[in-house]
Amino acid sequence: MSVHWTADKNHMTHPDSVSRFENLFELIGDPVVEFELIDTKPIVRTVNPAFGEVFGYDSDSMLGESLNEFIVPPEADTEATRFDQRTADGKYNSGVVTRLTADGPRDFLYRGIPYEQDGREFGFAIYTDITERNKRKQQLQQQKQRLEQFAAVISHDIRNPLNVAKGRAEMLDQEHAEVITTNLSRIDDIIDDVLTVVWTGQPVDGVEDVTVSAIADQCWRHVETNTATLTTADEAIIQADPDRFKQLLENLFRNAVEHGGEDVTVTVGTVASGGLFIADDGTGIPPEDREEVFNRGYSTATDGTGLGLSIVQGICDAHGWNVAVTTSKAGGARFEITDIRTVTPD
């Protein structure tokens, strides 16, 4: 490959610079094509090894030929022509495109970089294969749609008959009515938790700066805490989905009160490695149970749904956080949430 750039913003002539550029061209993992625009057609001058590996074409057979003839599908001709015209105008190109490989069409993130040499127009076309990422995105979208349909069925088709049953139960004698109403209310609670699992497990679309102490105070007021006490040990600002972070804290607070006792003290603070902890001075969680507590359905309470800590795990997964349970300094449970992006106040 021979690329000789002058000292202005588009060129460089120092031999060491050219050598480093050639090494980059050869070793970069993304397919790269150097082309010359002739009559607005991108004529291939050089391709790097990664291009042959990803696209599967014989590099020598492409030299001197139009790049578009090899890799642009018919339905993308207009798009490719627009990119070529922008290159001729000295403009940078970028976009998600579908291109033909020897094994069929694949999706790429395309970047086109124009340059001029001796009055001739050249460019570099760089392709990052995102086919698998797009497939995964489509799968997640389909999964989300199925979960939303499932949630709609639970919310409407099951909850409505429950409400009817509750109304009829009130017409029975008190002894039987209390038993029926208690069990119907438990089913209602399970439905609420299942819907929460569906909602909180979805990928996070956007995050905001969240002041942990302020959110913790709000969540504490929303939980039946009896004579329990909340302490915020540190001030911290994190990036999170505010609604899901509230759900996370409310579930951990509720768990602490239910298992640590009515007068338990719950502390929220930061960990040295980066992240948060929520600890209590209750009875704690035995080491042999610490892996299981995040499993759906796990509960030591006779009236629990076993979904509270599963919801916490789902929220952490959706954010890309890690959660683990250890022992607090007071001998209770300590939940550590790491890999959280924190914000430094101005």
Score class of each variant (00 low, 15 high):
Val323Ile: 15
Ala233Gln: 15
Glu258Ile: 10
Phe294Pro: 00
Ser213Glu: 15
Glu288Val: 09
Gly332Thr: 02
Asp205Arg: 15
Gly261Ala: 08
Val198Tyr: 08
Ala324Thr: 13
Thr232Phe: 08
Asp280Met: 00
Thr225Ala: 07
Gly284Lys: 00
Gly331Gln: 12
Arg254Leu: 10
Val257Asn: 01
Ile285Asn: 02
Asp217His: 01
Thr265Gln: 11
Asp217Lys: 04
Ser310Gly: 15
Ala256Trp: 11
Leu309Thr: 07
Tyr298Thr: 09
Gly275Phe: 13
Gln218Ser: 09
Val312Lys: 03
Ser328Ile: 01
Val223Lys: 02
His259Ser: 09
Thr327Ser: 11
Gly269Trp: 05
Ser299Cys: 07
Val223Ser: 02
Asn322Ser: 14
Pro287Phe: 03
Val312Arg: 06
Ser299Arg: 03
Gly320Phe: 08
Phe294Asp: 00
Thr267Lys: 15
Glu208Ser: 10
Gly332Trp: 01
Thr231Asp: 07
Ser299Val: 12
Gly261Gln: 09
Trp220Met: 02
Leu276Glu: 04
Gly306Gln: 10
Trp321Tyr: 03
Asp289Pro: 03
Ala236Asn: 10
His319Arg: 00
Val268Ala: 00
Ala256Val: 12
Thr229Lys: 08
Pro287Glu: 13
Leu230Trp: 04
Gly297Ala: 05
Val293Phe: 02
Gly284Tyr: 00
Gly320Arg: 12
Gly308Phe: 13
Asn226Val: 08
Gln218Glu: 15
Ala272Pro: 04
Asp289Gln: 15
Thr267Trp: 01
Gly206Val: 12
Pro242Gln: 07
